[in-house]
Amino acid sequence: MKILSLELATERAGVAFVDTDCPEGYLEETWEEARARHGELLPALDRLKRRGGWDWRELDLMVAGRGPGAFSGLRAGLLTVAFLAAPGGTPCRFVSSMEAAAKAWLGEQQQAQAMVIGDARRGHLWMGLVEADYGSPPCAWELIPGEQFATRRPTGLPLLSPHLDRILALAGADAIGLNPTPEATARLAWQREKDRAPAEPAIPLYLHPPV
């Protein structure tokens, strides 16, 4: 299966072309996105497409990460995938960015579970318990005040986060750095597609109410 994947949940943004018939074979373009404008998204995608030489009609699936993460990036990723996919009617799938990254990390480390947290702004953290098993249901992310994390942290589990400095300041938590990647996001989406798992909605994991 050939998959195009976009991951814009954090400042470390990326696009990847993944061919699941070649487990080690994928192409990726990454960049630092500081202004949340994602002006580099299409140039990166264009470079990826030229490098890979694939055609839109070859794609079996298009994927974008739902976060949790920066709202503007998540919106840009979801809409870009939806509007790229529409003309060819390519199937789309949207999965949690950090869940995908954590599953890939757990697989490499041969561990079963990890707690994943990040800075949700406004004094809050988002957190979720991620299972290594790709067949597990989507992670149930929750939003908690930063000061409550100490009482909620499970013992004996690795703690992963893309925001090391911020969660240290907010919750005094010392974590292992982990950023979402478009390749990991593609592989989780592929597994869910193979399992015919229910689709997740094409909207970001905001967690915060809008007002």
Binding site: L42, A76, T80, F83
Partner: peptide, 12 residues
């Protein structure tokens, strides 16, 4: 930004 992301993707 939502409109721009959508438009750019479709045009591309």
């Amino acid at each position: 930004l939502t409109g721009m992301a959508s438009a750019r993707a479709l045009a591309y």
